[in-house]
Design a protein around this nucleic acid. Structure first.
Lengths: 190, 190
DNA sequence: CTCCATCACTTAAAGCCTTTAAGCATTTGC
DNA sequence: GCAAATGCTTAAAGGCTTTAAGTGATGGAG
């Protein structure tokens, strides 16, 4: 029999595509094996178990997302940077819903450390340089921005906004306006 | 053999507890049957399939959350209302992570319509009455608040903030300050 | 060039999950 | 007290994960 030429990398790549097509929670060893015309057991020489497969997709997604966000950020500052970053984030999630879902799973500390997770936090901080917030307000703002982006995208992809007629794109833009506004006028600690 | 006395309601209640203990994605028909000392097949007279079981937990969670939010909101207005609502939301998610996860799943239109999902939107709107935002800004703000709350809670329960030392409670409070601030000074459409 | 070791994949099997169908036992109502 | 309805069990099929053992292709050494 001809060999399929499996490697951890090819499996991860295909797994990411599968996740985008079928949804992350339908990413199974069996489905992936099927796609390669191979028996499920064959994958276990390249990947320890389904957990590792999912974690690999998560790391891939984090890296791609960081890449995209970094490109969007290049040469921009202030609100420009904020909007470009946010759009990159939302765009990625819409194009790659399965990968985006993967990026949300809990990675063990080692994997997380080695992954692009830190780059994300750093990029968010770099956006805030345009608003010069002192610590610890900066940390609060990082968390707020992350929550906002993730929350919006998450609700949007789950159809949470579908029942109201107003264009989601417009609400997104206005939300970014609001974020920019509050970052420029960060309320004093009371 | 003695009968277990299963009903859809008791199953739903137990399923919610199971979800909180094991995580929503570990909520299975088998595990639930085990808890009742009964064979899995027995549940299928009361519940169509695992999807319906999950949907029932989602509806339960939405109702409980609405209940709690409504209680928190009673007699409050302005920032007071905002903070009470947000705290109710976050508190519920922390106490009942499995139910909270359930509340995020896509319900079919009928179920969603019959569920408390609408009450949530209405309550968010009632908070905004304290800030008198005209439509369509109000819709944008509803979406922003929902995104913020869900995003923060979601990242927090997934351990997303664990790697930074600052107290999450403090960031939460400051984020609410920021939201209050931007609602009071909603940026004009540019 | 050939043989053998290694590697890549298959087969086999166990265990857990969902779900349907059929059977038995218990309750309920007449 | 008996029949019908109800509630749970048994049985069985099919899909998933994962391990272990087996087979055939590949490639390096002699």
């Amino acid at each position: 029999m001809a060999r399929a030429g499996l490697t951890a990398e090819r499996l991860t790549q295909a797994a990411a595509e599968l996740a985008d097509e079928l949804g992350f929670h339908n990413l199974t060893v069996s489905a992936l094996a099927r796609r390669f015309g191979v028996k499920p057991a064959a994958l276990y020489s390249h990947v320890r178990d389904v957990q590792e497969l999912r974690a690999r997709v998560a790391v891939l997604a984090l890296a791609e997302l960081a890449e995209r966000a970094a490109a969007a950020l290049a040469g921009r500052a202030g609100k420009d940077a904020l909007v470009a970053f946010a759009d990159a984030y939302r765009g990625y999630a819409k194009e790659h819903p399965g990968r985006y879902a993967a990026a949300q799973i809990q990675l063990d500390d080692e994997t997380a450390y080695a992954s692009a997770a830190r780059r994300h936090a750093e990029m968010t901080r770099s956006i805030l340089r345009g608003y010069d917030l002192p610590e610890p307000a900066q940390t609060d703002a990082v968390r707020m921005l992350g929550s906002m982006f993730h929350g919006f995208v998450s609700l949007e992809t789950q159809g949470g906004f579908a029942r109201t007629p107003r264009e989601v794109d417009v609400s997104w833009a206005r939300t970014l306006d609001a974020l920019d506004s509050v970052l420029r006028n960060w309320p004093p600690d009371e």
